[in-house]
Amino acid sequence: MKVKFLIIIPAHNEENNLSFTLDSLQQQSFKDFKVVIVNDGSTDGTSEVIKKYTDNDSRFETVNLQKSAHQPGSKVVNAFKNGLNTQNIDEFEIICKFDADIILSENYLEKVENSFKNNPKYGLIGGLLYVEKDGDWVYEGNSNKHHVRGPMKAYRKESFIQMGGIRETLGWDNIDSILLENLGWKEIVLPELHVKLIKVKGADYTIKPADYYGRYFYFLGLNRFLAYVASSKEAMKSKSVSFFFNIIKAYENCCSNKLELKISKHEQKIINDQRWNMLKKKWLKM
């Protein structure tokens, strides 16, 4: 008999946050799930936190890794894949990548499961991220409300397999959306599902914002024209001309060094075509 959910949670030095995430899973109204916590070289008390759950709840398992390089995107996906490789995914119906610093509402899994069951073309489902501000939980607002953010991805197994899983690269959580859409699957945000994000994303990255965007546009597979357009958009948000040139410098450095992309030429074309269509629709009104 299949288990509905396989939930994989990469965790690095999350002793202050992880228990909130795991408690919210134990409190789910939908109980048919398995959780694999991937302890990615933690040096704090993360392993002790994990042990409290694995010792007392058979649905919780752990995988221990040596610390990997802390690069945006690739580190967390590497940990996720290590967790996934310990499981037989034929035994599950829905594959989730959750962060170790989120709190889910009690009906989260139930709502996701019902949505997948009632809508056979749904390939990726999630809620909306909320952060604490002045004592209140407010919508994070870092992305449009139709995009499932990286901390709370739930994939229909068939869609996950068809797109070849998630990529170990910066931009993975946009690449998956584009590839799934191209394959005919729908990415769905359920706005009534509020996911509390305990800490701000990117707070522990040392990479500078301009370098981040330059690398992000490169690893997303954007051609030079679309990368420059995207860079100008970010520069306009920051009201900084120098920010534009710094992003471009980072992008061109990646090009010069011919850094390896984790997407195929065909997938790169899909992503560029999608970006170009968005550009025509939003900017050129075509």
Rank of each mutant, 00 (worst) to 15 (best):
V36F: 01
H12Y: 14
N257M: 13
Y53V: 01
P10H: 01
R149Y: 05
Y108H: 15
N277R: 05
K117M: 06
S24E: 10
P72K: 04
L124Q: 08
S238H: 14
K269P: 05
Q87G: 11
W276K: 10
H70T: 06
L128A: 00
S24R: 04
M278S: 11
S105M: 02
E187H: 04
G141E: 06
L284I: 14
N114A: 12
N13G: 01
E61V: 00
D99S: 07
A100L: 07
G45F: 02
M236W: 10
M152E: 08
D134T: 12
M278E: 13
L284P: 00
G126V: 04
I37L: 04
S42Q: 00
R167Y: 14
I89G: 12
V131C: 04
T206S: 15
G171P: 00
I270N: 07
V148W: 13
K280F: 03
R149W: 07
G221V: 03
S19Q: 10
I207A: 07
M278H: 10
N246Y: 01
E181H: 11
M236I: 09
P191H: 14
S242V: 07
N277V: 02
S115C: 14
C254E: 02
I198G: 11
S256P: 00
C254P: 07
T62A: 09
F219I: 10
F243C: 02
K186Q: 13
L279V: 12
L22S: 05
N16W: 03
G126M: 02
M286N: 15
I102V: 08
K258M: 09
L284W: 13
Q27P: 05
F30L: 13
K237R: 03
T43A: 00
S232M: 15
G171M: 00
T54Y: 09
E93Y: 08
A154K: 06
K186H: 14
T46M: 09
L222Y: 15
N144G: 01
K31I: 08
I175K: 07
Y139I: 14
I50P: 09
R224W: 10
D211A: 08
S143W: 02
E110S: 13
V38K: 08
T62F: 15
F219K: 01
K4C: 11
E140D: 12
N114Q: 13
G165F: 14
V35R: 07
D32T: 10
H70Q: 12
M163P: 08
I89E: 11
N64R: 05
V200D: 09
L183T: 06
A79H: 13
D101L: 03
M152N: 00
G164R: 08
S24G: 06
G150V: 09
E181N: 12
K52N: 13
N272F: 01
G184K: 05
Q71P: 07
K51H: 07
M1C: 12
E15P: 00
D32V: 11
M1L: 13
K281P: 06
K51P: 05
Q66W: 15
A235M: 09
D204N: 14
R156S: 06
K262P: 05
L124W: 04
I270G: 06
D204C: 01
I198L: 15
Q28T: 07
Q268P: 10
S231Q: 01
L6Y: 06
S115T: 15
H70Y: 15
E267G: 06
I178V: 12
L183D: 11
I166K: 08
S256M: 07
D204S: 13
E187C: 11
